[in-house]
Design a protein around this nucleic acid. Structure first.
Length: 296
DNA sequence: ACCCAGGGTGACG
DNA sequence: CGTCACCATGGG
């Protein structure tokens, strides 16, 4: 990895096949929007987002990345967000060398698991329950317009993800009006707990077991949503969210399409190792890319 | 009309 | 401990 800061733009090169499009659209984060890219400048894709209140534009440059704007001292934030210091070549070798998982690699290679803001992840994945990615994105966009701070960026208006107190102050009806449905009370209740001072960050240092126990006490957070939050925002690389896609994929890849017992599934996940959560994202991408279960 | 989507809750055995 | 009806919403 080589980094260079020039004209308020951060260039990060030599990223072992990093793929921005796959990472931004794979369903781990819901706020990245594709935008125009400059192919004359070598860009092959570009997206905008607001990260912890900062509006940014990221573009794919070869197997590298540009991020704008980035001021001096902010490099670490972005390197951490995109998880660029992790050995993904090593993780992809683990997948390639595993008979059960290697089928996932050709399509999913290049995915990175982003390190998102924990509160945004908490609310976003409460919304994700029994929902689809397109609609989840829409609800979150409307939530940001409703309660987030407006930010001017390159001539378009963007919105920060709302502060905990701002969501806590919303009414159930306001959330239902943006499409949150029956999850509205859960969203408000969880936002209130954070606004009242609960520190999600402390879960970063706990064991997976203890961190799960804490998060499961939030209304609207069950086993799957819990593991999404821990994996996507709190550094628990072995948190392994099992949704309908992963359930079908694991059944096919590990159990020859014979439904396993819960304990057998648990054992299979453990066998993947300490990066099982990151590898889960490759499995998820595979399952969705072939629409596993839809036509067989 | 029915089924599905990055499921969770609460009730009941 | 496990199962299961129910929960809003929009798209296929």
């Amino acid at each position: 990895m080589r980094t260079e800061l020039k004209d308020n733009t951060l260039y990060i090169r030599d990223l072992n096949g990093f793929n921005l499009k796959k990472s931004a659209e794979c369903g781990q984060a819901f706020r990245w929007k594709a935008c125009d890219f400059n192919d004359a400048a070598g860009e092959t894709a570009a997206y905008t987002c607001v990260l912890s209140g900062r509006p940014i534009r990221a573009a794919q440059l070869g197997d590298g990345l540009s991020v704008h704007p980035c001021k001096e001292g902010e490099e670490r934030f972005f390197i951490n967000y995109f998880d660029l210091e992790r050995d993904y070549a090593g993780i992809e070798k683990l997948i390639a060398d595993d008979r059960r998982l290697s089928v996932c690699l050709p399509g999913a290679s290049g995915i990175r698991v982003f390190n998102q803001d924990p509160f945004e992840a908490l609310i976003s994945f409460i919304i994700s329950a029994n929902n689809n990615i397109k609609r989840i994105s829409g609800i979150i966009d409307r939530l940001c317009m409703l309660a987030g701070q407006e930010i001017e960026f390159c001539g378009s208006r963007m919105f920060a993800f709302p502060e905990p107190a701002s969501i806590a102050a919303l009414s159930v009806k306001q959330l239902q009006d943006i499409g949150a449905g029956y999850r509205a009370p859960y969203i408000i209740d969880s936002a209130k707990r954070i606004a009242d001072g609960y520190e999600l960050e402390k879960l970063r240092g706990l064991s997976l077991y203890e961190a799960r126990k804490e998060l499961l006490a939030f209304k609207g957070v069950g086993p799957k949503v819990c593991d999404c939050i821990l994996l996507f925002s709190l550094g628990h690389t072995d948190a392994f969210p099992i949704d309908v896609w992963i359930d079908r994929a694991m059944k096919e890849l590990f159990f020859d399409s014979i439904p396993p017992k819960r304990s057998e599934m648990q054992e299979a996940v453990l066998s993947i190792g300490k990066y099982s959560g990151i590898i889960q994202q490759y499995i998820f991408y595979y399952a969705r890319s072939i629409q596993l279960g839809k036509n067989n």
